[in-house]
């Protein structure tokens, strides 16, 4: 474990060194990332202007914003490592870089995830946090130490769920050689996880809870802070769902690796 952390630290240090040598680039990306976070948020703000439209099927504007901000936090953590999954099919399979990964005495998935990072996502993490705090004030939510602990555990769990889903999708690249792979379209699917799940119909609710568990990324854990009943069990199931997702992802990944053909050049 200590060994793994040391290696992780070394990878991160190397990454920082290269990243910092392109400083303007970093700031441009950071601004771009804040814009990405802000535009998503603006959609909700414009949609529910607070005058004509004050609620979304029973969810108040502040609640919707709170969930949205919550989702942004998990997603920012996710996207800080997911950058490698995004281009996995092209970079690792088609260009054959996965050979190098397999030649190291380290876990292959951990190497892919931690080979580079997307630090820009700190931008949307801050936007998300600010949104959440703003909404909490309107809702009159007081946040104690335990709540902070839950926010920490659940947002990490949320990120883990997202990573797991995309590991499963990326491992499809082992079977079908395709420059793009099937994962990118699904990045857009994350949108479902940013809204109160009850606005969707039953089939979608079921899928978001038990097939592609994006509802656990923000919605269920966020209900911890609301004065509502009906979600207590699902809310605290979040860490367990994350754990199960990891196991499923690992099985898919291992199966994919066994089918790796290393034809790239």
């Amino acid at each position: 474990m200590i060994y793994n952390l040391q290696i992780f630290g070394a990878y991160f240090a190397q990454f920082l060194k290269t990243r910092m040598s392109y400083r303007t680039d970093f700031f441009v990306s950071l601004v771009a990332n804040i814009l990405v976070g802000a535009t998503g948020l603006l959609f909700v703000v414009f949609l529910m202007d607070g005058k004509n439209i004050t609620e979304l099927n029973g969810w108040s504007r502040a609640e919707v914003l709170f969930i949205y901000g919550y989702a942004m936090i998990s997603m920012a953590i996710f996207s800080s490592v997911a950058i490698n999954l995004y281009g996995f099919g092209n970079r690792y399979i088609i260009q054959g870089q996965f050979d190098r990964v397999l030649l190291r005495p380290l876990n292959s998935l951990a190497q892919v995830l931690f080979e580079s990072f997307n630090l820009d996502s700190i931008g949307s993490l801050l936007v998300g946090l600010a949104t959440m705090l703003y909404a909490a004030r309107i809702l009159g939510i007081s946040i104690g130490m335990l709540d902070v602990g839950w926010l920490f555990v659940s947002s990490i769990s949320g990120a883990v769920i997202l990573i797991s889903v995309f590991v499963v999708l990326s491992s499809v690249s082992f079977h079908f050689e395709d420059r793009i792979g099937i994962a990118p379209p699904f990045y857009n699917l994350i949108s479902f996880g940013r809204y109160p799940i009850t606005i969707f119909n039953r089939v979608i609710q079921f899928i978001l809870s038990w097939v592609i568990p994006f509802a656990f990324v923000a919605f269920y854990p966020a209900t911890h802070f609301f004065n509502r009943t009906g979600f207590e069990l699902l809310c605290y199931l979040t860490p367990l769902v994350a754990l199960v997702s990891v196991v499923v992802a690992w099985v898919f990944w291992q199966f994919g690796v066994s089918k790796y053909e290393s034809t790239g050049n």
């Binding site: 949609l47 979304l56 499809v172 079908f176 395709d178 420059r179 793009i180 792979g181 099937i182 379209p185 699904f186 857009n188 699917l189 949108s191 479902f192 809204y195 606005i199 969707f200 119909n201 979608i204």
Partner: peptide, 22 residues
């Protein structure tokens, strides 16, 4: 790109679904 073709169709369906319900 066959896989992308099929998932692409599905993605648009998802998008419409999200905004439809919103």
């Amino acid at each position: 790109y066959r896989a992308r073709y099929y998932t692409g169709i599905a993605t648009y369906l998802f998008f419409v679904a999200v905004y439809y319900f919103i």
